[in-house]
Every structure is written in structure tokens, then in C-alpha cells.
Amino acid sequence: MATGGRRGAAAAPLLVAVAALLLGAAGHLYPGEVCPGMDIRNNLTRLHELENCSVIEGHLQILLMFKTRPEDFRDLSFPKLIMITDYLLLFRVYGLESLKDLFPNLTVIRGSRLFFNYALVIFEMVHLKELGLYNLMNITRGSVRIEKNNELCYLATIDWSRILDSVEDNYIVLNKDDNEECGDICPGTAKGKTNCPATVINGQFVERCWTHSHCQKVCPTICKSHGCTAEGLCCHSECLGNCSQPDDPTKCVACRNFYLDGRCVETCPPPYYHFQDWRCVNFSFCQDLHHKCKNSRRQGCHQYVIHNNKCIPECPSGYTMNSSNLLCTPCLGPCPKVCHLLEGEKTIDSVTSAQELRGCTVINGSLIINIRGGNNLAAELEANLGLIEEISGYLKIRRSYALVSLSFFRKLRLIRGETLEIGNYSFYALDNQNLRQLWDWSKHNLTITQGKLFFHYNPKLCLSEIHKMEEVSGTKGRQERNDIALKTNGDQASCENELLKFSYIRTSFDKI
């Protein structure tokens, strides 16, 4: 039985969820670079991206490699990797027998973001014989899940209580170790020597080791999670996991709180800001991140802002960003909400898709409305799209047979046209069989910064309504002859009103 693990408890099935942008060198404390989270699957090609990484700022997932063999891993080693800020997950990587050479110096898994409450997941690794993470000293947050690894031993010899604050939620089941077939031998045991430290858990006094050649490092209890030197002297209180010299914040392997210019500090002093819960960055760093993602459509890219001495992905609820200094300031009234469309555009074809934009005031991208039916549609669209004030790209209304009016965009005031449909149009209306009105132009103002209007096959939309939009939106004169079809717009509506004058002759039985 794995020490510190839980057996036999019912657990939810383990679901495996399925960018080499360097964020800056980590400095003297770390020998390499800070790398983003990685999802490495199918083959070993991307694994080489770990070569210079000291910190993975995010998670590391290595999974679904069915053609790899043990010899493929023999020359692979990433000794610079010290810390993973989120979680480490391995799933069905064939041929991998140990992690001792792959990650010989991995010391800390912070667990800032977890995989279903777990910071370390080893699942269905069919050839893994031992973990071998002999320098792993601290899992700051989260638990361990090690399950269905039929060859995995050296679990009962690990004292997880020396690595985690609590072992109650560890789930370590259905491994070879369960069948008591392992016969784990710690260093020196074969020669009758006791080389590794022994600890007591559940009444068992057991030597602690990761492999037959690597003991588990056990520091004096007084050192807590700070770690200790090879001689057993406690590291500085700002260290986490390990250090090369005692009581020196510049000799830590990793930091308990924050890293700044080669030393570990309790908090980031001005003019620095907390970033990702582990390091200090200056304003320029946060500003660069903001600008890199301002026009990016890459998933996970955030326009970072500053709030409460932190550089964070977005302002919290009730705050909006001051564009001059990136500071989050309290909103006066309802907060603006910028919604970034991942692929640059979004099609609204149902109430469900409209709900995804609920509360958005600025759309960074283009909207395509293609709704053919739905219950209580006008009210639903207004509830979900009615706060949109600005669209950076274009607005396209296409084959939306259920629409009679666009009044559900009740606050839309600006279409920038930074991206144009077919390279020309910022407003595009095609084949809307029941569209009769755009907006009530006596109450609604709309500016279209650039781009043209396109109207074709809107049989109940009168040309007068379209011409009014040209005047109000500032697009009059931009359109070419064929942009607004004269014969297919309003051709099934009563669009022309003329005053009919009647004269009559009164007659009676005795007068003409």
C-alpha cells in the first residue's frame, strides 16, 4: 500500500482533458527560462521544448504516446526543470519506465491550478516501474492521483506527508504495488545497510526511497516546507523545498512566496507586481503582455491589467481597466465587458449561442446573426445582446428569417469595421425574408467608422429604411451602385405612401 494514499474509496472516473512563447529569463536562482504550460502528445517531438525550461508557468501534460519505446527515452533528460506552477499529468506514455532521468531536479509542483483537485496525476502508464522524482520536495496545493499503472512499484516507500501538507485526498490505487509483488529495495538494503531515512506512518517504520538508488530526502521537522541542505541544516524561511546553503534567500532552489532578481522575498516591493503567484514583474512586463494579447485571437491570451499590486489576466467583477495605466478602477454604474472572439468572429444561430455573449459591452471581433427560429426570440436576444455598444469588426445579418427588427441591439452605437466582410463591408444584410426595420432612427444613433453597407434580398425592408441608415451611420456616399439592390429590397412591402385627393359631386333626387 502506498504510504499516505487512500484505498478502496469510491472515486469519480478520471477524465483526461485534452506555445513556446518565453516569458522571460528567471535569473540567477533558476538555471534556465520560464516556459508556458505545455500539452505534449502523440510523439516526442515537442518534448524537446523543455530543454531550457527551469519553470513551467502553467501545467505540463505528457500523454497518448503509443509508439514510443524505452530506448526512445534513454537520452532524454531535462535537468534544468525545477518547478511547475500548476500540475504534472502523465497518461498512456508507452515505453517510459521512470522519471528519474527525465526530470531529475523537479523540486516543486505548486498546484496553482489543479487537474480535478490533483497536482500530480500518473494514470495508465503501462510501462512505468517507478516514479523516480527523487528531488520532489513540495506539492504546495492539491493532491496526488496514481492509478492503474500495472508495473509501478516504489510507492509504499514514499512518505507523501513530507511532500504535501495533507495526504487525506491522495488516491493511489490499482498499481502493481497493490499486489505486494514489488519487493522494493532501498539503497544499501541488499548489503544489509540502512542508507535512507525511515519514518513512521500508520504504525509502520519504513525506509523512504524513490528507487533502488535514490533515497527520499527527509528534512528535520523544524525546517517545515522550506527544505534543508545535504547536511540537514534548514533553508531560509522564504525558500521552498530545498537550498544549497542554509538561511540564505539567494540560495533557495525555489521560493515559498515570490522570486525577485535572484532572491526569494515575502512580497513584491514597489515598483514590482505579483505575477502568477510566484514571481515579481515590473510595469513594462505587464504592459507588454497586455499589448501582445490586445489584437491576438490565441486562446488563453489575456490583456493583463494591474489590481491590488498584482498583474492579473482581467479586472475583477465591479472594476474596469483604465487604459492609460492598466489599473483596475471601480465602475460607475454597470461595468464594461470586452469579449474577445477566439477566431475573430462568432455566429449567433440560437439563443444558446447568444447567451455566451451575455453582459458583453464591447465585441472584439465580428458578429454573424443567422437565426431561423426560436421561442420568445426578441426578448431572449435583447437579454443577451442588448448591452453590446461596440463591435470592432463587422455585423452580418444573414438568412435570419425569424427577425423582424434589429432593435434587440438596443445599445449598439459603434461598428468600427477594423475587419470587413469580403474585404469591403462593415454591415452586411443578406436574404432576411421578414426583416422590416433596422432601428427606430428617431431614437437610435449608430456610427460606422469604416467599410460599406450591403443589402440584398431583404424583400420587406424598404429602401427608405436603408437610406436612413446611410445618413445616420455616416456611410452615405461610400456605397457603390450594386451594394444596395434596388429590386430585391422592399419588393414585397408597401414602401411608397402617396396622399390621394378626392373630389365629389353631391346629387339628390331633384338636383344634379
Results as ranks from 00 to 15, higher is better:
I84L: 05
K310A: 09
R263I: 10
N105F: 04
E57I: 06
A230M: 10
I146G: 00
M83H: 07
H274T: 15
N175D: 08
K129F: 04
Q303E: 14
C209Y: 00
V173M: 04
P104M: 01
A119H: 00
C239T: 01
L29F: 09
F275Q: 00
C315P: 07
I40L: 05
E266S: 15
Y304I: 07
T194P: 08
D248I: 06
D159P: 04
H291V: 08
I312R: 13
I40T: 01
V55T: 05
T229V: 09
E124K: 00
F116P: 00
G142W: 00
K100C: 10
D184T: 05
A190Q: 09
R141S: 01
H274R: 07
T107M: 03
I158S: 02
L128Y: 00
S323D: 14
H274N: 15
R110D: 00
M125L: 01
C234P: 01
C219L: 02
L289V: 13
R46C: 11
N257H: 10
V218D: 08
Y171P: 00
S225F: 13
L99S: 01
C252D: 00
L233H: 12
C239V: 04
P197K: 14
E49Y: 15
F275P: 00
Q303K: 10
C53H: 01
N295Y: 09
I185A: 07
C311T: 11
P70E: 03
D169L: 12
D178P: 06
T211S: 08
L90E: 00
T250G: 13
N202C: 06
V108F: 04
Q245M: 07
F285S: 03
I312L: 08
E314K: 07
G188F: 12
A119F: 01
M38N: 10
C153L: 01
P334N: 05
I62Y: 00
G262A: 13
R256P: 02
H291T: 06
P271R: 14
G241Q: 02
I56L: 04
T45F: 03
Q276K: 09
K224T: 12
Y154R: 07
D159Q: 10
Y319C: 11
M125Q: 04
T85A: 10
L106R: 02
V34R: 10
F103M: 13
K148T: 00
L233P: 04
T107G: 02
Y94L: 14
K176T: 11
K100Y: 04
L90I: 03
Q245W: 04
S166L: 05
H59R: 14
C264K: 00
D39N: 15
P246Y: 07
T157A: 07
H302F: 12
L131V: 07
D39V: 00
H226K: 06
S98V: 02
I40Q: 01
N295A: 07
C235M: 02
G58R: 02
E124T: 00
L81T: 08
L90A: 14
F66H: 03
Y272K: 04
D169E: 13
E168T: 13
V265H: 15
R263N: 14
I201K: 06
N257G: 06
L120R: 01
P79G: 08
L332C: 09
A198P: 05
V121M: 00
Y94D: 00
C328M: 02
R279W: 04
D177Y: 02
K67S: 04
G203P: 07
E314N: 08
D261R: 11
E207N: 03
N202G: 14
R162H: 08
G333A: 12
K80L: 08
N195A: 11
T85M: 12
R263D: 04
C228L: 01
N43C: 05
P246C: 10
L90M: 13
N135R: 10
Q299E: 14
C219E: 01
F73A: 02
C234R: 01
R279A: 05
N308I: 09
Y259S: 01
S112D: 15
T140M: 07
S213A: 09
L96N: 00
G203L: 08
C252A: 01
L60Q: 00
Q216L: 05
C301N: 03
L131R: 00
C335S: 03
E97F: 13
F115A: 02
A156Q: 08
Y134S: 13
K217A: 12
D277G: 10
Y87R: 00
H302G: 12
L89P: 01
C301I: 00
N179P: 07
K251V: 05
L44H: 06
L89S: 01
M83C: 08
G183W: 15
E168S: 15
D248T: 03
E180D: 06
G183A: 09
R69Q: 10
T157R: 10
H59G: 10
F66S: 00
T45K: 12
G58K: 02
K217R: 08
S323N: 09
F275V: 00
N175W: 04
R69H: 02
S77A: 10
N135F: 00
K193L: 03
H214W: 08
E97I: 11
H302L: 07
S296K: 07
L102C: 05
A190D: 03
Y94Q: 07
P330T: 15
T189Y: 11
G318R: 02
Y94F: 03
V108L: 13
K80D: 04
N170F: 05
F73T: 04
W278R: 00
F258N: 03
P104V: 02
G318Q: 15
C255P: 00
N309Y: 12
G203M: 07
S54V: 06
E97A: 12
V144A: 04
D159A: 07
T85Y: 04
P187L: 12
H127V: 01
D288N: 13
T211F: 02
V281S: 00
D39P: 00
L47S: 12
E147T: 01
C311A: 13
L155M: 11
K176L: 03
I82D: 00
N309F: 13
N135V: 02
Q245K: 10
Y273S: 07
S225C: 14
G241F: 01
N175L: 06
L233S: 12
N117H: 01
Y259R: 14
C239L: 00
E168R: 12
Y154A: 03
L128A: 06
D75E: 10
L90G: 01
G192S: 10
I146H: 00
L233N: 13
P79K: 07
V265P: 00
P36E: 06
L164W: 01
P249E: 11
V253E: 10
K224G: 11
C280G: 02
L233M: 11
K251F: 08
L120C: 05
H226Q: 07
C182R: 00
G241H: 03
N149P: 01
S225K: 08
L76F: 11
C280P: 00
W210C: 04
R256W: 13
R208P: 11
F285Y: 13
I40N: 02
R110V: 08
S324M: 04
Y94A: 04
L88A: 01
C255I: 00
V108S: 05
T229Q: 09
L102K: 01
T329R: 07
N170I: 12
V173T: 02
A190N: 08
R263H: 07
R162A: 12
L155T: 09
N175R: 13
C328Q: 03
C153I: 00
L164G: 14
H28V: 06
Y272W: 08
R92Q: 00
S237Y: 08
K129Y: 03
D178L: 08
F78S: 01
P31Y: 14
H236E: 12
N202D: 09
T157D: 04
V121P: 04
G32W: 08
H59F: 03
I109R: 00
Y154T: 03
C53W: 00
K251S: 07
R110F: 08
R141L: 02
Q216V: 03
T211L: 04
K191G: 14
L114Q: 04
L96R: 00
E130I: 08
N325V: 06
C328V: 04
L164R: 09
P336W: 05
C264V: 00
C196N: 06
L64D: 00
I163S: 01
C315H: 04
V281L: 04
E314A: 08
N135D: 03
G203S: 11
H48A: 07
K176S: 02
T320F: 14
H302W: 11
P220C: 04
L155I: 07
H28T: 12
A119S: 08
T211Y: 02
Q299P: 13
H226L: 08
D159E: 10
E124A: 01
V305I: 05
D159W: 15
C243N: 00
Q204D: 13
C301R: 06
V281M: 01
G203H: 08
V55I: 10
I62F: 04
R69T: 05
F66Y: 00
N175A: 04
N43Q: 12
G111F: 00
E238Q: 10
Q204S: 08
L106G: 00
N150L: 13
F275I: 01
K191R: 09
L63V: 05
T199N: 12
